[in-house]
Simulated scan of single mutants.
Amino acid sequence: MGITAMNHFTVLTHDLDATVKFYGMFGLNPGWRPPFGFPGAWLYSGDTAILHVIKKDTLTEKDGVLDHMAFSAVDLPAVAARLTAAGHEYELRRLAGGGIWQLFTRDPAGAKVEFDFAENEPAPPGWAG
């Protein structure tokens, strides 16, 4: 008995609309969510809710810390362009020894988000890594 798969991540945010819009740029769409009695959203990839977002105006020491979440992704140039167009900074690098692309950014609440792309993806225009 033990862990068999990742079910979902939950992020806390002070701006629910901005956070839902941020993840929507990458194909995660709001869907059904139980009536919990507090504001939030469940964001889906296809039929699977993989990111839960909870609106919380104040964080306490008991809220915990998440270093980052990582998503497998496709179309590196398009993802980089969406981030740039929306005014989000990012860091891009190639993984040493494997060659996969790793793009790091932050969502509107400050959570670090990693997008991993196959090594054969083209670099975004102007990248001079």
Rank of each mutant, 00 (worst) to 15 (best):
V65W: 10
E89T: 10
D15S: 13
S45W: 10
F9M: 12
F22E: 05
R33V: 06
T10L: 13
R94M: 00
F22R: 02
L83C: 03
H14K: 15
L12Q: 04
V11H: 02
V65D: 09
A96P: 01
E91S: 07
T84G: 05
V74P: 04
E89H: 05
T10D: 12
F36Q: 09
W32G: 11
M6G: 07
P34M: 14
R82V: 01
A18V: 07
F104T: 00
F38P: 14
T105S: 14
A123S: 13
K21M: 14
R93M: 02
A111M: 14
H88K: 05
K55E: 15
L43T: 08
T4F: 07
P124F: 07
G27V: 12
A18D: 13
M25I: 02
L28P: 02
P39W: 12
G110W: 07
P122A: 09
G126C: 08
A128I: 00
A80E: 01
P125V: 09
V11Y: 02
L76S: 01
A80W: 00
Y44W: 08
V113E: 03
F115G: 00
L95I: 03
P124L: 09
N120T: 12
A118R: 12
L95R: 00
L28R: 11
I100D: 02
T84V: 03
L59Y: 14
F71N: 06
D63M: 14
A73S: 10
F9L: 11
R93Q: 03
Y90R: 02
Q102F: 04
W127K: 07
W32V: 14
A96R: 08
L59R: 15
D75H: 15
I50G: 04
G24I: 13
F104R: 04
T48A: 15
A85I: 06
M6Q: 05
L12E: 01
A49P: 15
F38T: 13
F36P: 05
L16W: 10
A73I: 04
H52Y: 11
A123Q: 03
T13F: 03
A80S: 08
P124R: 09
A111L: 10
V113M: 08
L12T: 02
G46M: 11
D67L: 13
L43N: 01
N7Q: 13
T60L: 15
H68A: 05
P125I: 04
A81H: 12
A80K: 04
I54A: 11
G110P: 06
I54D: 04
I3M: 12
D17P: 06
P30A: 08
A123P: 11
H8N: 13
A118F: 07
D107P: 10
H68P: 02
